[in-house]
Design a protein around this nucleic acid. Sequence first.
DNA 1: AGTTAGCACTCGCGGCATGTGAGTGCTAAC
DNA 2: GTTAGCACTCACATGCCGCGAGTGCTAACT
Lengths: 383, 383
Amino acid sequence: MAREGRLSARKEVILRALVEQYIRTGEPVPSKVISDQLASIYGPGYAAATVRNELVILEEDGLVAQPHISAGRIPTDLGYRYFVECLMGESQLAPEEQRLIRHQFYQVQHRLDEWVRLTASILAQVLQTAAIITPPRDAEARLKHFELLALYESVVLIVLVLEDGTVRQERIVLDNPVSQEDLSRLASRLNDRFRGADARTLDTLAFTEGRDLPPDEVLVMASLARMLAHLDILTPDAFYHDGIVQLLQREEFAHADADHVRKVVEALEQNRLMPALVPQVMQGDGVQVIIGGENDTDDLKDMSVVVARYGERGGMGGLLGIVGPTRMQYGRAVAVVRYLAQLLNDLLADTYNPQDVSEPPSQDDAESSRPQSDRVQGEGPGS
Amino acid sequence: MAREGRLSARKEVILRALVEQYIRTGEPVPSKVISDQLASIYGPGYAAATVRNELVILEEDGLVAQPHISAGRIPTDLGYRYFVECLMGESQLAPEEQRLIRHQFYQVQHRLDEWVRLTASILAQVLQTAAIITPPRDAEARLKHFELLALYESVVLIVLVLEDGTVRQERIVLDNPVSQEDLSRLASRLNDRFRGADARTLDTLAFTEGRDLPPDEVLVMASLARMLAHLDILTPDAFYHDGIVQLLQREEFAHADADHVRKVVEALEQNRLMPALVPQVMQGDGVQVIIGGENDTDDLKDMSVVVARYGERGGMGGLLGIVGPTRMQYGRAVAVVRYLAQLLNDLLADTYNPQDVSEPPSQDDAESSRPQSDRVQGEGPGS
DNA sequence: AGTTAGCACTCGCGGCATGTGAGTGCTAAC
DNA sequence: GTTAGCACTCACATGCCGCGAGTGCTAACT
């Protein structure tokens, strides 16, 4: 049914007009509207009847569809795909918007963890959709250090720090009270032993060494191993999300049944969405668009994902993206996601690979020596 | 309009039957149904016409209402209130259910932080509603210890621990690279200085002492102060919630408009609900029921909250509760919330005030010496 | 052969009238 | 004070109708 290859120029123009119009209005687009728009620009060759003839072909190709027989056309997932790949004019962010975003980052410039929250918040605000982001992690990060703190009697706090700055804590209850001195000794011993270990290493070490230790030490080691194991895989809580409310505010959901709403909230809450996409996104470069049910089987069949990697490949980095209705402004979404990914790139690069590592910073250094990077620091707090 | 004081016995019986029936079915309750139910139990005096006469009075008192003229009655918020205060038969949890819950806690007996997640999860599952809980905190907890870790060049990780085991971390970026030695020195100096300080104290100290320090040290102190300040008040992220999905699955939401759904999700996501109730709940004892818009002005006008305090007054403790539709099984909800509050009470008491602190635990100790407390530890892992 | 105007046809949708049944309020008898 | 009976009131479902939007098709035109 679907012919391969590139469409004729006129079909492309028609498809593009249709998709853009549908994204604007959300109503099935009649041939007359397309004709009116295009005839005034391109002259003859776009009468309503002609457009209808072309639409029949596009429908055979599976790019558009009719909700019912006497209605206009709407794009199918395949139609959106063609639009995104070949027809979409990718808009740049307005300088004004860029300035506003950079200013917000400037205000949290010293607080690395705020970058993540802020990015998600900006994505949600600017694009009025749900946003998902992972904190910057080093995929190969190893154990840097952990601490055992006696909180009360037999309550012990474990704080575990990876080399990339990831922190996890857990309070455990031992069978017997312990002193801080004993804990510190144990911590120091285990730290020497396990520093630089990754999850698997520690797991096996804990298993083999834990044989003839006192039960409370076994408990500590088991907890450490479990915490590391949870860090190693892409656990659901590795994702931070924002903007469920913005997503639900969109008119697509105004008349949706509550069951559909529930499924969307469920998928976002439980972070079932992103983990499945991780391998694909980590592979490719640039911004990627996943349309409708292309990957996910059901549930989110009229939702699309725009997602990108940020940070150095193999170094500190992560994922960020948005989840919105299939009917979204892809050009703008791609532009915003790309801009924020680039911004985080630059911030991380400045932090982890500063060019001025040896020389003290001077006044005009920030202004002049980095012409291309969207540097936040160089901007004043004005406005 | 509304008469004060206690209703007549028959009105109470009728109101109770009406509320229970409405909670069961969700449909306006006709007089005939009430009559059928009550006449078979209490004999004469409950004919449909008589019930109708009584319902007119109850309606004048503002306890019941009609959605439209030829429909049955539904309870008003005031009606629910009377029901909860005076009529509700508070059911106990079935021993089978108690066992199941205790078993789940037994499986995470050593992991204090899991208790919170597990409690919320159980509330959501058992009652099919959203659940909210705060981790156990000591209201007067002070700074126990903090660490400064050099992660990379000028990236520093601050890990802050309060005496009650609360942990917060933050990564900050200094203006200049620092060595771990310098950081350790600084940390040790500041630790000595600030140990035991609460947020306000530290804030003023940081302000007065921060005068003529190097800028990077000022930055560290400012970060510490901000982290403590965020810990001191009841910040939204002090609440953990679960069960939004369960709540949305209830039939009340099956035909609700998406706007209403959005508002509910919004309130739960942003934790706007609980903080307003904290003072009231902390004051009173036992389980408290907040019905409909009694406190909250709008938004959640057909939602009710069942909430309780757990832990010692003035010691380690917190809040736990559920948010469900006004039309919920209050008796059961109160029973479950009470049971879990008591369970956390006992767990915390055993942890922080163990009776057997000096003697080693023996086999029959767990079975015999605590007749009344719902102790988790004493139960085997069976089933 | 491709393009276009005109026209008949198809459906979705909103409005309207109607019938039905549930549940009440009222009245009169017990 | 309680109850049976009955008329009345709405909400709701159903069916019908007409309108209008948008198409598909055909025939004429370039």
